[in-house]
């Protein structure tokens, strides 16, 4: 009896080690690049210019940084060194007003804002002048239930992460419906299904990247709309974790100038970087309020020179990083 017990325990132990080794080898990749270096951080909690109350979205141009200052219902604009330049928008639901602005996108000198409470995409000039609005509340074609992020292709067509409708919508520039991925208001963990999608981005070859928020993964579709790949933890199907290549709620995705993919890994307080095929490259950031640390990272954006900017929700600040491989 004793011998049998020992044999069973040894077998079980070996099995466990085998499973752990398999998981490690298959789903815990090693970094192939050094982590990015912290450059600077700016901001604190408040309502004055340069202060934030829940920064949740970010977009950058060659010389400016646009930040969704969500609870303050405004967009703040800074230079790359964090010097305040201007602000626009106010809390509310009228045209040009903002109800919890989330992820941002810039296309042809226009700023596209996912207006989460008002179920619309609002479009402003980069100077802050209100231009027009796309969409309305609902679950029909071209309607939204809390849009989290938006991206535009070269033709000016929109791709919208429609958070509570559990889908990604593809719309013409005028907001008319083209197609959707996911079944409206149905959560799923398989490919082409979503679990509260938060953001979208387009790669240089116009492949569509979806931050599939609570599925803890990125899903990729090619320019014809066909599913291509997914990544994030074992089988990329809602298994979260702190390991490299795993996520714990994805809140933002951005594409850099070299077509690399950057992901805001919310609960893991870090940015993860991948190549366009989903190969893990590096990760940086950890929990805290010191340099290069986050109290929940919400959004990422990459400047044309490769500098990465991120919003740090709990510390109410913007943080910038640069690859040690890039000069400057």
């Amino acid at each position: 009896m004793k011998r049998w017990l020992i044999r069973s325990a040894v077998t079980l132990g070996l099995l466990l080690v085998g499973v752990m080794l398999t998981v490690w080898m298959l789903w815990i990749p090693s970094a192939v690049e050094p982590p990015y270096r912290f450059i600077q951080a700016w901001g604190e909690r408040g309502t004055n210019p340069g202060q934030f109350n829940d920064p949740t979205g970010i977009a950058v141009t060659a010389d400016e940084v646009f930040v969704s200052d969500s609870r303050n219902g405004r967009i703040q604009v800074f230079d790359h060194e964090g010097r305040f330049k201007r602000q626009f928008g106010s809390p509310g639901d009228k045209p040009g007003q903002l109800g919890r602005p989330m992820n941002l996108s810039i296309h042809e000198n226009m700023l596209y804002i996912a207006d989460y409470w008002n179920d619309r995409i609002q479009v402003f000039g980069l100077d802050g002048k209100y231009h027009h609005s796309i969409g309305s509340s609902g679950d029909g074609p071209g309607q939204f239930n809390s849009p989290g992020g938006v991206a535009l292709n070269r033709k000016g067509e929109l791709f919208v992460a429609d958070f509570y409708n559990q889908r990604i919508q593809h719309l013409n520039a005028d907001g008319s419906f083209v197609e959707q991925w996911g079944t409206t208001a149905e959560i799923g963990i398989w490919a082409e299904e979503f679990n509260y999608p938060t953001d979208v981005a387009l790669g240089n070859d116009e492949q569509l990247l979806v931050a599939d928020g609570y599925n803890d993964r990125i899903q990729v579709f090619d320019s014809s709309g066909k599913f291509r790949r997914k990544w994030g933890g074992p089988l990329a199907m809602n298994i979260f974790g702190p390991f490299p290549g795993w996520f714990a709620t994805v809140t933002s995705v951005a594409v850099g100038p070299d077509d690399n993919v950057f992901v805001a890994d919310f609960y893991n307080n870090r940015v993860q970087k991948y190549d366009s095929q989903g190969r893990f490259l590096t990760a940086f950031g950890r929990r805290g309020n010191g340099p290069g640390q986050f109290a929940y990272i919400t959004a990422v954006a990459v400047a044309p020179d490769g500098t990465l900017f991120a919003t740090d929700l709990g510390n109410n600040r913007v943080v910038s990083f640069r690859s040690p491989r890039k000069p400057q």
Partner: peptide, 15 residues
């Protein structure tokens, strides 16, 4: 609750 998408979703439903 730490995720703003969730927090704002609850707030929106209340409002």
């Amino acid at each position: 609750l730490a995720c703003p998408y969730c927090a704002y979703g609850i707030e929106k439903k209340f409002m």
